[in-house]
Design a protein around this nucleic acid. Structure first.
Lengths: 229, 229
DNA sequence: GCTCTCAAAATATGATCAAATTATGCGCTG
DNA sequence: CAGCGCATAATTTGATCATATTTTGAGAGC
């Protein structure tokens, strides 16, 4: 007989309880990196996280290793960990990779996605518009990520989606830095074009719209980096 | 100012001794996966590695976590870890990603590489030919990886090279499985074409040669998978 | 400016807890 | 009486923590 009487299953927080500590730490740090709570160059210490998050040392170490493998953190030769600082050539490489991977994902998603799921994407895009209108930088970053991530899931190509997520972790901190300087007004979104292509199940057009979205976003980062140096 | 006075740099064995255990475990497991000592579907246990490698539990956990993030291992919902088994659609996605990333790397490498470094690549390719002639499967896998990896380093685009390495970790075990069944005789290599393009610093031709090499290798895996099922 | 000393951080180990799989044994059915 | 199924016990495995050891960085003193 199982010990669960079915009561605790009703709690929505069930997920967070069963989740291992190292996973929770990973997700938390990941969000902080994606949504710009950690700035490029910022140093990270294992001890500091142990104290701040009030968990043991082993889970923190595992989460850090994962993020280093993701490219979201760098492990310097001094055994010091920090958020990486992108060079111009790095951004240029990310642009190429994002165009290759994410346009393909958009193409495949346009073919596979159901009309019902497109509505969910539209809802996310609405919240994105609202965040832009309110100048809510964090909201912009969260919903923009949600839109792309939800879309890529419908491509049903987990290996490519994984590569895309890895790339987002790399430019997340820099994107936040740029948005903080320029604000959200100067960030037009091409998502409407993508949504239109999805409704028509036109992979080619979806890929083209995605390319414009990617290039536009990355050019902002590029400009921010050049004027910062 | 720098603390180096130039004296301690003279010790060559300094690097290997100071390497942390978790790094050593990671490198070792990584090699086992890339060069086919672990078969697709093979279960991995943390405790087993602790006993086999005679290290503590934390370093093993960190190495495992990194490899899971790399896609080289999978963490099933039963809390069991194993080498992933590729589906046809996975191989198809890897082909697309490899073509995008590695052709670009070959293109860039052709432009940047010095004549002296091409000689090193030729030497690796010679050892590769010898391994093929001798039917040395592991030697084939090692030198084939070395060739590509060394080439990609000259592209001076670490982010793209990192993506490529991640893909190699995914198909390594399956490639070994195929080679074990078909032998090395049926594996012609297109590296000679690549080398010729490098000498001419012709990026376009190098990318085309690389595409043939990638497609040829991945088709072998695809055939192996279809006939296995 | 250089070296020595000390504090802080990272590394590594072993013990302990929890969960899951496998093994065991009892009762039931044919 | 033999074979099957289910419940429980035992073993294995993963997760976490507290602690000891090693390494790095910084500051005092010469």
């Amino acid at each position: 007989m199982l010990k669960q009487s079915g009561i605790e299953m009703a709690l929505p927080s069930d997920r967070s309880e069963k989740q291992p500590a190292h996973e929770a730490v990973y997700q938390r740090l990941r969000a902080q990196i994606l949504f710009g709570e950690l700035a490029p160059g910022q140093p990270i210490t294992i001890q500091g996280l142990v104290n701040a998050l009030e968990v043991g040392m082993t889970p923190v170490r595992e989460a850090i290793r994962r993020l280093i493998s993701d490219g979201a953190l760098v492990f310097k030769d001094n055994r010091r960990i920090s958020v990486p600082i992108l060079k111009i050539s790095d951004v240029e490489a990310i642009v190429y990779a994002r165009k290759s991977i994410e346009c393909e994902l958009a193409h495949r998603a346009a073919i596979n996605i159901k009309t019902n799921d497109i509505s969910n994407l539209e809802h996310i895009d609405l919240m994105l518009d609202q965040a832009i209108a309110e100048g809510d930088i964090r909201g912009y970053l969260v919903h923009n990520y949600s839109f792309h991530n939800a879309l890529y899931r419908h491509a049903e190509t987990p290996i490519l989606a994984d590569l895309a997520e890895r790339l987002w972790l790399r430019f997340g901190p820099s994107l936040r830095m740029v948005c903080g300087r320029l604000g959200t007004q100067s960030v037009p979104d091409r998502h409407k074009d993508i949504l239109a292509a999805l409704y028509k199940h036109d992979g080619e057009v979806a890929a083209l719209a995605m390319e414009r979205d990617v290039v536009q976003g990355m050019e902002q980062i590029m400009e921010g980096l050049t004027e910062a140096s």
